[in-house]
Design a protein around this nucleic acid. Structure first.
Lengths: 247, 247
DNA sequence: TGCGAGGACCTGTCATTACAGGCCTGTAGT
DNA sequence: ACTACAGGCCTGTAATGACAGGTCCTCGCA
């Protein structure tokens, strides 16, 4: 009993492997395929979708990367056991709320809000072509007056028209995104690294350029896999600690 | 001016792409290739090493994954700018020290220390065959008497002979690994997710099985890329907060 | 001198073919 | 009833060939 599939679009719209990946992901996330159940073999998928095994393997590779499936050599590919949904608590709102609860004064200062073209890193994170228009927000967050966190957020302009003119001072970005644009974060990828600030960043955070900071790269997407926000945050970890909380 | 390379081993010892990846990684990490300098093109690497472009692309793919290089369509592959070394502060030692500094009592209780066979997850993380012998440590950490963190650590037995008989109670694992086995963590990958504990885990942490916990999967390796430790930590985030600190 | 077209070079994508080696099961032999 | 082995299925690895489309330099023309 195999499902039937609409033919893939071969007119260059999108790579075949990406279309195939989406089709399989939709099946898995819709619950049609149950955890630990085998997917059709690579050869079968080739036939079903009318593409080469190269395309199938590329698609499966991405799904393995996303932890949606796992593969066992000699047996096949299987649906990964459903993970508990990672409830997305931004270091932005989440940690600010935590700190406020603990009686500290948290303020957010908008450094700049501009329209611009996505650079390589942002484009890769948001899965958009480099050069596409993005709204870029630079904000400085203070705790008890002390600089604490510097964030550069990029959002595809077509998803958030007019955001560059919104007043975000001391207002949760996620609230605005949800209320005004209907963007609800469902999950995010984050990378944490130790970095040095450049001269401007150091000045804003009031540290020397040789002070190691916590750099957090993040990309957030909705349940429909629309990647709507990428940010890079620089964190002073000497004064206030950075933490991730679950609520 | 191209370098000369020893021929790759074709006798099934290791996939060609892995050998090629190692060769390129060694060059990059030794500083022979400078940041943002281009690597030879895929075609050139094919010729230099006498392998197909398939092999070259697989090797480059892994290096991109490791963030050692980046690729630009139409231009080539380049050495990634040297990242500030991620100073590895385990949630084990690091956060424990932080808490101790803040005047809280941190104790570690060994639940079990056994020899066993690596399961699929551990094998994948440690890059060893499933079934290889691993020393497995299960430990419970308390803060002010309250259960806080449950960790299951797996280490390849051949790297840490006799560790299953060591006394680790209230002693830093990393100290033991460094002093006794010369294993110095240089970097680590970590994944954070929200999970429910199973019955036994819930009992140890004194929560219900419907309490969401912070699950941290981690694998650590030395500067020689020897992956020596994988752990899965379950964190009570309702009582004490989980945080990552830089020191 | 400035500019635009062309071409060389590069990665991205895709198809096809081949074989090694792990996994599983059915079957023949004990 | 039990075991050993063959064969089928599956993924992993590898080679080869082809073309699309991005990048960059050069050369000829205005």
């Amino acid at each position: 009993m195999t499902l039937t599939y609409p033919p893939l679009d071969r007119e260059g719209a999108e790579p075949l492997w990406m279309q195939l990946m989406r089709a399989l992901r939709a099946e898995i996330e819709s619950g049609v395929r149950l955890p630990d159940q085998p997917l059709p073999s690579e050869a079968e998928l080739s036939d079903l979708f009318g593409v080469s095994r190269t395309v199938v393997r590329e698609a499966l590779r991405e799904l393995v990367q996303e932890r949606l499936i796992y593969k066992v050599k000699g047996r096949g590919a299987f649906v990964a056991p459903r993970k508990t949904e990672l409830r997305f608590i931004g270091s932005m709102s989440g940690s600010a709320d935590d700190l406020r609860e603990s009686g500290r004064r948290v303020t957010t200062q908008a450094i700049s809000q501009t329209l611009g073209e996505a650079d390589e890193r942002e484009a890769a994170l948001l899965r958009i072509p480099a050069g596409e228009q993005v709204v870029r927000l630079r904000r400085l967050r203070r705790v008890d007056g002390q600089p604490w966190l510097l964030v550069v957020t990029a959002l595809p302009a077509r998803l958030v028209p007019g955001l560059e003119r919104a007043i975000l001072e001391n207002q949760s970005l996620y609230d605005v995104l949800r209320r005004r644009y209907g963007l609800e974060p469902a999950a995010a990828d984050r990378w944490i690294e130790a970095v040095f600030p450049d001269a401007e960043e150091a000045a804003l955070l009031e540290v020397s350029t040789s002070t190691p900071l916590l750099g957090i790269e993040s990309v957030a997407w909705t349940k429909d896999h629309i990647r709507f926000e990428a940010y890079y945050a620089l964190h002073r970890s000497d004064q206030t600690r950075f933490y991730v909380g679950i609520r």
